[in-house]
């Protein structure tokens, strides 16, 4: 059981990077970006193909990030310069990435068994696999945390936030909103691809299917994090996203242990997210009914 919890924490930490990416598009820019489903696989594909080709594992992750950023840029340009609605732009990139990722890997999956990974340094110290992944993933999450916390406090970071919050106001303050949207999508997908690369290295393979449904997992982690751990400040949000990702993985581990068939996992996640997203509306409706009833009794 302990080992399974450690496994869930390790997975949750790696997926935190993905959740950060989703947060940038979904919360900061206010765009549902499906590019991530392709860019997480792209990150995995680039890293795996790179390692097989003999490139140092850490360096492959850098290429993963660059790949993800490019994918984000394509979506951004489709949306801003070519005026295609954001959701559709991201779907187009996501579909296109399927083929691109197959080209990168040369086949539907690449095994990394007996290949070097970024976790080797700790594994050589005879640390259990899950602990090694936790340590390394924690380093990446800490780095991502610091970068995001700094970046969204800078002039450009503030301009991106303003663009997502009120585009007209942003333009009136001289902000090139198109460029800010592209930049946000570039950064977000960079983080997502980094997550993909790390995940591939930890599970020792990259698979063309691995991105399917990842946006929903990202959203589930984000919402669980915000609801359970708060979103008062940006600092608070970043911590919550990490804890939310871990909580999501622990929940999944537990329901599987309780006997839910693995095939139902995506249905379960989708229903959870749908409920969480609908919660404000349901609450408002219930409240409205209560007030209406109250009004009648008062009269």
């Amino acid at each position: 059981m302990l080992n399974e919890i450690l496994g869930a924490v390790a997975l949750g930490l790696m997926w935190t990077l993905m959740t950060y990416g989703v947060y940038i598009s979904y919360r900061v820019l206010d765009v549902a970006d499906l590019t991530v489903e392709g860019s997480i696989t792209m990150g995995a594909a680039i890293s795996a193909a790179g390692i097989v080709a003999g490139i140092p594992p850490l360096v492959t992750l850098l290429f993963s990030v660059l790949g993800g950023m490019t994918a984000g840029m394509v979506t951004g340009i489709l949306h801003t310069t070519l005026k295609i609605p954001a959701l559709l732009s991201s779907i187009l990139t996501m579909i296109a990435l399927w083929s691109v990722n197959l080209h990168i890997m040369g086949k539907a999956n690449v095994s990394l068994l007996k290949q070097p990974t970024v976790f080797d340094a700790l594994l050589k110290l005879h640390l259990p696999k899950n602990l090694a992944v936790i340590c390394i993933a924690l380093l990446f999450v800490a780095g991502a945390f610091l970068i995001l916390y700094w970046f969204f406090g800078t002039e450009i970071g503030c301009a991106i936030r303003a663009t997502g919050n009120n585009e007209r106001m942003a333009r009136a303050q001289g902000i090139n909103t198109d460029r800010m949207k592209i930049l946000g999508l570039v950064i977000g997908n960079g983080f997502v691809a980094l997550a993909g690369g790390l995940i591939a290295q930890s599970q020792s393979f990259a698979d063309i299917q691995m991105g399917t449904g990842s946006i929903v997992i990202g959203l589930a982690s984000l919402i669980i994090g915000e609801v359970l751990f708060g979103k008062k400040t940006f600092f608070n949000s970043l911590i919550s996203l990490c804890l939310g990702s871990i909580t999501y993985r622990v929940i999944i581990m537990l329901v599987l242990k309780l006997g839910m068939p693995a095939n139902d996992l995506k249905l379960f996640t989708a229903i959870t997210v749908a409920l969480a997203l609908a919660l404000p509306t349901i609450k408002a409706k219930v409240n409205a009914k209560k007030t209406a009833k109250g009004g009648v009794t008062n009269a």
Binding site: F151, G153, T154, E155, I156, C158, A159, R161, A162, N165, N166, M169, A170, Q173, G174, I175
Partner: peptide
């Protein structure tokens, strides 16, 4: 920008017409 602080809104306005970079 409703989700941003008063001072953040003012800071955005204070940079109108200037190049925005990686300074705070």
């Amino acid at each position: 920008a409703g989700n941003m602080w008063i001072e953040e809104n003012l800071a955005l306005a204070f940079r109108r017409g200037q190049k925005r970079g990686l300074k705070w």
